Amino acid sequence: MADIHIDDFYRDCALALLRLYNFFPRKCTLYVDDIISPEHPDEFGIPTQRHLACFGCMIWLAEEGYARYEDTIRHDALDQIVLTQTSFIKLSGLLPAQLCQPIPPHQQENPPLPPSVAEQHATLAQQLRHAINHQQALMVKHLLRYFFNKELPPPHS
């Protein structure tokens, strides 16, 4: 039996983290509808299971220390949410070469890309964007497992 809900969880986490990364360091309101396509509640006003799963993912990210928020808006959004320092460092950090998707040949230049562009391509945030844009669910899962497990390097003195 396929664990589709786990694949959805990884995708929801990736999209939520990237949305917050795009707003960083500003606080924002993160709506479930920003992550999944809008789903209408049933005739009693109860949100769908998919909607609740996405909302649960957002709450989980905050409870695990990947984001901070001030309040919820029903089951629809987290208000005044921002990435934690740890998440920002992880998303903007460089990945090991084996986790990076190569730069497609049509985007490579001769001479090679400037070091700053090549470095930006190797960040976790950029690799997550690439995996989502190319619908690579397995790559999203691998990148987020790395994100959730990665030890931070000791601070430089």
Rank of each mutant, 00 (worst) to 15 (best):
L17F: 13
L17I: 14
L17Q: 10
L18M: 03
R19L: 04
L20S: 02
L20D: 07
L20T: 10
L20I: 06
L20V: 08
Y21V: 04
Y21N: 15
N22Q: 12
F23E: 10
F23P: 00
F23R: 14
F23W: 08
F24A: 14
F24R: 03
F24L: 11
P25E: 13
P25R: 11
P25M: 07
R26S: 14
K27M: 01
K27S: 03
K27V: 00
K27P: 02
C28W: 04
T29Y: 07
T29K: 12
L30C: 03
L30I: 03
Y31G: 00
V32T: 10
V32G: 02
V32W: 11
V32I: 14
V32M: 01
D33V: 13
D34I: 08
I35V: 09
I35F: 00
I35G: 00
I35C: 05
I36Q: 09
I36P: 01
S37F: 11
S37L: 14
P38H: 14
P38V: 09
E39G: 03
H40R: 15
H40W: 09
H40Y: 09
P41N: 00
P41G: 06
P41D: 04
P41F: 02
D42A: 04
D42P: 04
D42S: 12
E43N: 01
E43S: 05
E43R: 15
E43K: 05
F44V: 10
G45M: 10
I46L: 13
I46K: 13
I46Q: 13
T48K: 12
Q49I: 12
Q49A: 15
Q49P: 00
Q49T: 07
R50Y: 05
R50P: 05
H51R: 14
H51C: 06
H51Y: 13
L52C: 09
A53N: 14
A53G: 13
C54P: 07
C54H: 09
G56D: 04
G56T: 06
G56H: 04
G56E: 09
C57Q: 03
C57P: 00
C57Y: 01
M58D: 00
I59G: 05
W60K: 15
W60A: 08
W60P: 01
L61Y: 07
L61G: 05
A62W: 05
A62V: 12
A62Y: 08
A62G: 12
A62T: 15
A62R: 11
E63V: 14
E64C: 07
E64F: 06
E64Q: 12
E64T: 12
E64G: 01
G65D: 06
G65A: 06
G65S: 07
Y66W: 15
A67P: 11
A67E: 09
A67H: 09
A67C: 14
A67N: 10
R68F: 01
R68Q: 03
E70T: 04
E70K: 06
T72R: 14
T72E: 06
I73E: 09
I73R: 12
I73A: 11
I73G: 09
R74S: 11
R74H: 08
R74K: 15
H75G: 02
H75T: 04
D76Q: 11
D76M: 06
A77F: 06
L78F: 07
D79L: 06
D79K: 11
D79F: 03
D79I: 03
Q80C: 08
Q80F: 07
